[in-house]
């Protein structure tokens, strides 16, 4: 390696280090396209990516690669709703006609060797995991491609938008859930009392979101400006669907 290229490499390394420092305080794991339009007969599915903006940094300052990720959408069965910020007892079907199997994973092994969809006991797909292999290098950004089903907002409802809170785990070390800490993983989840939340971490009660805007049927006149609905997965669903289970064997969290 000649002197010039060595200098370039050194500069790149420094730039990367600065970037990591910046990302570690700002880049929460989110969807690449967090807001989409309602659609049924017009567009079909929406293609998207989970964006892993940074990996883990231990209390000792060691940067770790991300070795697995889990993404779980609310199942709409025992999910809780807010309407204009107020808790609501209405079921999701009052606002969305076809929520239940919202996501399909797209095969891609660029970052992780293995991946699969997460199904509810009825076989609906509510999320996915990816893991194994070399994982996500700690100074780089990871994209995990997937698509979401076209969402049909109930035309007789007053919903002008419906936002789904999405629980995400970025795993850097496999531990039991009792040993969860930001040394081992980042959790971007709603604080609903599940096992999958780390108090005082930047991801605490900071889930990713997918907002669906009403774009097909106009609001009924009686609705005025309409309402914004937020759908939050239950603790029971997250405890059931976040673990990575392969052929009946739970791989993560460790047991």
């Amino acid at each position: 390696m000649n002197c010039l290229s060595f200098k370039k490499l050194a500069l790149l390394s420094i730039s990367s280090a600065v970037l990591i420092a910046t990302q570690s305080v700002t880049a929460h794991t989110r969807l690449q396209t967090p807001t989409i339009d309602e659609n049924n007969a017009r567009h079909g599915s929406n293609y998207n990516n989970e964006v892993i903006g940074h990996t883990c940094k231990t209390a000792a300052g060691e940067a770790l690669n991300t070795i697995g990720t889990v993404v779980v959408f609310p199942d709409g069965v025992d999910s809780t709703l807010t309407v204009n910020g107020e808790a609501s007892s209405q079921p999701l079907i009052d606002f969305v006609q076809n929520w239940g199997s919202p996501v399909q994973l797209i095969q891609n092994n660029d970052i992780f060797e293995s991946q699969d969809e997460i199904q509810t006991p009825l076989g609906n797909v509510v999320g996915f995991w990816a893991g194994g292999g070399k994982g996500l290098q700690h100074n780089l950004t990871g994209l995990i491609p997937f698509r979401t089903s076209g969402v049909v907002i109930e035309p007789t409802s007053c919903a002008r938008s419906v936002t789904f809170q999405i629980a995400i785990a970025d795993i850097c070390q496999v531990t039991t859930d009792a040993d969860f800490s930001t040394d081992a993983l980042n959790l971007w989840t709603p604080a609903v009392g599940s096992k999958f939340q780390i108090e005082d971490s930047s991801g605490y009660n900071s889930p990713a979101t997918l907002k669906v805007n009403r774009t097909i049927e106009a609001l009924p006149e009686s609705c005025g400006e309409g309402v914004d609905v937020v759908v939050i997965p239950s603790a029971a669903q997250l405890n059931r669907d976040m673990p990575i289970v392969i052929d009946g064997t739970q791989i993560w969290p460790a047991q």
């Binding site: 070795i67 697995g68 992780f112 060797e113 293995s114 991946q115 699969d116 893991g131 194994g132 292999g133 994982g135 795993i171 070390q173 496999v174 531990t175 990575i244 392969i246 052929d247 064997t249 791989i251 993560w252 460790a254």
Partner: peptide, 12 residues
């Protein structure tokens, strides 16, 4: 204890 997820590949 540190472990990696390399078991994923075999199991999957």
């Amino acid at each position: 204890m540190k472990k990696t997820l390399t078991t994923f590949a075999l199991l999957a």
